[in-house]
């Protein structure tokens, strides 16, 4: 029995190691191929710098990148918080009336499909080029998964639970507060998991438009400056930094989400996937 357990533990450890090692291995292979490509075809650094040059440039401009990442992170977090709040309120309204759902759902899909790059300049004009506009773009881009997942959580209620509330002659408000909203918590967490990456993308897209005004200095603005000066290694370093920022936020939300789901859903009998 002890032997079986030790085998099982070893295989669990192996699987965990693979989760970390496999992506690193892929990254190393990718970087080596990239390096080989640049050397082999003698690609000039102004078109495609070597991966090591990109990393060196990241290190050289680390303080600038950290400061810009912090600014972008704040905008993305505000955008995510706004989409969580506004999206949840919209979802609650949707859950209360089929009519509201039918009438407004197409416009929610519009939020999902609208080319944000096209309307971002308009948003700049309406809300002024600054943090507010960036947060607005981040919110618009990240709100759909929240609305969709929370609405689904509010509406997919166990029939027995609904009957239980009907038997107690619960008011609409009581059913919402004591049954529908708690049932939708896993939906909110799932929505946040999808939306957090989108919030970072939205913030950077917003910053690209705000950058020209000089009123803001997030990663998007740094990217514009590097592109204008044809500093490709620096530009790629900035892109890598923004990717890292997205991953960081995703991991943080994933972790917080799994803690909440463990307390709320696993204990509550749902699967936290």
């Amino acid at each position: 029995m002890a032997e079986i357990d030790s085998h099982r533990n070893a295989s669990v450890r192996g699987a965990r190691l693979a989760v970390i090692a496999a992506p690193i291995l892929v990254f190393i292979i990718f970087a080596l191929s990239w390096h080989a490509l640049v050397v082999l075809f003698k690609i000039p650094a102004v078109i495609l710098p070597k991966p090591l040059d990109v990393l060196t440039s990241m290190w050289t401009q680390r303080w600038e990148l950290l400061r810009a990442s912090w600014v972008t992170l704040q905008a993305a977090l505000l955008g995510l918080a706004a989409s969580a709040l506004i999206g949840s309120v919209i979802a609650v309204l949707f859950s209360q009336s089929r009519w509201i759902r039918t009438a407004f759902y197409p416009y929610v899909i519009f939020l999902q499909t609208v080319p944000i790059v096209a309307i971002a300049p308009l948003l700049m004009i309406w809300s002024g080029p600054g943090l507010r506009a960036v947060v607005l773009v981040s919110c618009i881009i990240s709100i759909f998964p929240i609305i969709s997942n929370v609405t689904s959580g509010l509406l997919s209620i166990d029939q027995n639970h609904l009957d239980l509330f009907r038997m107690q002659e619960a008011s609409r408000w009581q059913t919402l507060v004591k049954l529908r909203i708690p049932s939708a918590i896993p939906g909110l967490v799932l929505g946040l998991r999808v939306s957090c990456g989108l919030a970072v993308i939205g913030a950077i897209v917003g910053e690209l438009f705000v950058a020209s005004s000089g009123a803001y200095d997030g990663l998007g603005m740094v990217m514009m400056a590097k592109q204008a000066n044809l500093k490709i290694a620096d530009l790629m370093g900035t892109i890598l930094a923004s990717t890292c920022l997205g991953i960081l936020l995703f991991v943080a939300v994933q972790f917080l989400g799994s803690v909440v789901l463990r307390r709320w859903t696993k204990d509550a009998g749902f699967e936290s996937t």
Partner: peptide, 16 residues
């Protein structure tokens, strides 16, 4: 209705 109580096939407890 307040004089009635219903016990469902599944326990129908609120999981949270």
């Amino acid at each position: 209705r307040s004089r009635l109580a219903f016990v469902f096939q599944e326990a129908a407890l609120l999981p949270w």
